[in-house]
Design a protein around this nucleic acid. Structure first.
Ligand SMILES: [Mn+2]
Ligand SMILES: [Mn+2]
Ligand SMILES: [Zn+2]
Ligand SMILES: [Zn+2]
Lengths: 147, 147
DNA sequence: GGCTTATTGATACTAGGTATCTATACGCTA
DNA sequence: TAGCGTATAGATACCTAGTATCAATAAGCC
């Protein structure tokens, strides 16, 4: 029986279809599983939640979704690479080192200063990768409450 | 016979000794090999250049050097993780996507703007990871010459 | 030179991901 | 809505980068 998907998962599938990829049962399952995550996740997380799917299929689906921009990679402070639902286009992440929450940073206001810094080194800027680590609002206020 | 090392390699070894690590023959070989690299490298690169050393030894030496800060990790635009000799302390890299050259960016002038952006999201900044991609001076001028 | 302990290298193991290949199922078209 | 060509799935083997284990060795201190 075909996997039922919610609106968010439906969006992921539509993005793939727009690119000419078929909407298959495994892809629906992966899309729904991703839509169900409440924070960044690994391919292994998905695999545990979708034990009936082939491992390669999960990696392949993830790769397509990253390529089309609806899922992005997140570099954790310890070097681990995770995935998460993404705003399309260029953006960064505020990653809470305490609870692991991730918040997208949409406006990229470092581009201007980077351009200038690069230029002063004779370097022609074309892109950058930035991850920001710290403590989210609720983790900061939690500490105050605990004191 | 003990491996002869040059001044740069000697510095790496001294850093380890300061931390209480012994100056062994394999570590001298690794330090010298790192000092010989003219750009960022992988553990596998070192292994090819030091075929007589155990693979684990190379990873262990690299890890120590990264921990003591004299070698740093560099995230290439394609996601590959490389190593390179490092200025100690916080800094970033200008990575040429054409020739692969890497230049250290010592002053971190994005800290201020990041702090402000984070604060506006209720986020308490504690650190960040930034890699900058583009084209180095010689690659940019090379294109002009070729036209 | 001898002793203690850190370190080595062999080996096996892990995580995360890709290549290959046959069987299947999408989805278009008649 | 049956049939068909092609994309895709899943099994499997393989790969890169790294870690755990452990017996043998070598630093370095007295
Ligand atoms: Mn994102
Ligand atoms: Mn560096
Ligand atoms: Zn938090
Ligand atoms: Zn260059």
């Amino acid at each position: 029986m075909p996997t039922r998907v919610n609106a968010l998962a439906e969006q992921l599938l539509e993005t793939l279809e727009e690119q000419g990829y078929r909407s298959t049962s495994p892809r629906r399952a992966v899309a729904q599983a991703i839509a169900n995550q409440d924070k960044h996740f690994t391919a292994e997380d998905l695999r545990e939640q979708l034990p009936s799917l082939g491992r390669a299929t999960i990696f392949r689906s993830l790769k397509l979704l990253v390529e089309t921009g609806v899922v992005c990679r997140v570099l954790l402070e310890d070097g681990d690479l995770h995935y998460q639902l993404s705003h399309r286009g260029h953006h960064h992440h505020l990653l809470c080192v305490e609870c692991g929450a991730s918040q997208d940073l949409l406006g990229c206001d470092i581009e201007a200063v980077l351009k200038q810094t690069s230029a002063s080194h004779g370097f022609e800027l074309s892109g950058h990768w930035l991850e920001v680590y710290g403590r989210c609002k609720s983790c900061s206020s939690g500490e105050l409450a605990a004191v």
